[in-house]
Simulated scan of single mutants.
Amino acid sequence: MDMQPDTLTPGQLLARGTCRHLRRAHDFTCVEEMTLKTRLRVDVMALGPKGEIWVVECKSGLADYRADSKWEGYLDYCDRYFWAVDSDFPTEILPAETGLIIADGYDAEILRMGPESKLAGARRKALTLRLARTAMTRLHGFRDGDFGGR
């Protein structure tokens, strides 16, 4: 799989820069394209050094944002919620009660911290386990991509 910047979609570039920033500046590890139990797919789910879970929804443009009606469904699955957009995005239309990240394919910056809404312990444990299993399955796939599983 080629993950060079010239082969990524605009949303994937935003996710890449966001994940790099969260790792370097905040010691978070990230899983992109994380599917929740509800079958909603999160662009970036990040796990912090103290077990905190952040969700980042990447929007490549105004049309992408306007087409999204599911973002509030992510709020029950994170301690903080963020939008990641590029520097040309009209950020004034994003809900003020959410976090804001400006990103490109190489880095990002948190402009507004999303408010904290701590997850219940049982949900945190289930999400952390799901994150770990997803990351480990993907890592195994890189090593042994032709393995069919079970």
Rank of each mutant, 00 (worst) to 15 (best):
E33I: 03
L47H: 14
A25C: 10
W71L: 11
A46S: 13
E92I: 05
A25V: 08
T35V: 15
E97G: 03
L14K: 05
G11N: 15
G99I: 06
G99K: 03
R20C: 07
G48F: 03
E57F: 09
V55A: 14
G73E: 11
Q12L: 02
V85A: 04
A84W: 00
L94T: 08
W71A: 11
T29R: 10
C58Q: 05
K37F: 14
G51P: 09
V31R: 12
G61W: 07
I53H: 02
L13V: 01
L94P: 01
L8F: 05
I101Q: 07
E92T: 14
T35N: 09
F82S: 00
T35M: 13
I53W: 01
E33M: 04
D79I: 09
K50H: 14
P90I: 12
W83N: 04
W71M: 10
T98E: 05
K50T: 12
V42S: 13
T35E: 15
D6W: 05
A67G: 11
C30L: 09
T18L: 06
Y65I: 08
G99D: 04
H21I: 02
L75C: 11
E52R: 06
K59N: 05
I102N: 06
L94K: 07
L14N: 04
L13N: 06
G17I: 00
D43C: 08
A67T: 08
P5I: 12
F28E: 04
V31I: 15
G11L: 02
C19Q: 08
L62W: 10
V55Y: 04
A63T: 14
G73H: 12
T35A: 14
S87H: 13
I93P: 02
M34R: 03
T29Y: 01
A96Q: 13
A67R: 15
E33S: 15
E52K: 09
R80Q: 15
F82W: 03
P5M: 06
P95A: 12
C78H: 01
P10W: 00
E32I: 04
W54V: 07
G73L: 02
P90Q: 12
C19G: 11
W71E: 02
L36A: 12
V31E: 14
A25H: 12
Y65P: 07
L13E: 05
R20G: 02
I101M: 08
Q4D: 08
Y81D: 01
E32L: 09
A15F: 00
L40E: 08
M3Q: 11
D86N: 15
L13Q: 11
C58E: 06
M45D: 01
V85K: 07
K59H: 08
G73P: 10
G73W: 07
D79S: 03
T98F: 03
T7E: 05
L22A: 09
Y74C: 04
R39G: 02
L13I: 09
E97R: 10
V85M: 11
T7Q: 13
V56M: 07
T38G: 10
E72H: 13
P5C: 04
E92K: 15
I93K: 11
V44K: 04
E52W: 00
R23F: 13
R24K: 09
L47C: 11
D2H: 10
D2I: 09
F89D: 05
P49E: 15
Y65N: 05
